[in-house]
Amino acid sequence: MGANTETINLPVGECTVTRKGSGPQLLLLHGGGGSIAEHPVIDRLAEKFEVIAPTHPGFNGTKVPDHFDGMPELVHFYLDVLDALEIEDAVLLGISMGGWLAAELASINCARFSKIILVDAVGVKVGGPTDRDIADVFGVPPDEATKLMYHDPANARDMSGLTDEELTELAGNRIALGLYTWEPYMHNPKLPQRLHRISAPTLLLWGESDGLVTTNYGKAYADLIPDARFVAIPEAGHSPYAEQTDRFVDEVFAFLD
């Protein structure tokens, strides 16, 4: 199945977008690891949908507009992206940081979205000030971060075999993630008071072994959204689409059917 990648110009900046498949629109917002347009899960989703996967500015070597200081700029950037891509009646699927972005967009205006899937999403604080709701991925050794993120750490990308170019892209993704999530860390304190505006049916799809944001966090997140259900996928961590691709796709299709 052929993919089509192009860079579109926007009123502020530009955006690289990959499209694959045909059918109803499924807008896929990637997480802090960068674009997953090349991942096999996209082929699976493209069996039934036109998957539209933009790359957030700063990830995978793309440019960050000079005025960007954090998530608010990305949210407004995406309002332009939604216009430019003529997103209508689309499924909105956001993963991790992309789930936060999806929740922000849907709570501004949900009219463009038929259904919403938040996958191991961040974006809210559900506990008290001293509860570490979201593990600090910038403040732990890499092997500990791997343990938090994966059900089976053997599924993590092997860093030792990367070329300088690949590692530099990874470092760039990490910088972009820092740009959007540094403070308040991976959440918007105002978002919980906005989530009532999400009128579309919403699925919070979680890796049961996620150590970055646990299933308890996911359930509390679901409680903040009016028409939300929570489903956990066993033997998967923070990236269930990668560790349990088939189960993940099954759950997505079951929700969207």
Binding site: P141, M159, L167, T168, G172, I175, L177, G178, W182
Partner: peptide, 22 residues
């Protein structure tokens, strides 16, 4: 000092950050 403290995202350009990661 371990790399995750000396290499916070955005301090070093990507090329140098990558070398610290390695």
């Amino acid at each position: 000092v371990p790399g995750y403290w000396s290499n916070p995202p955005g301090y070093h350009p990507p090329q140098i950050s990558a070398q610290i990661m390695r």
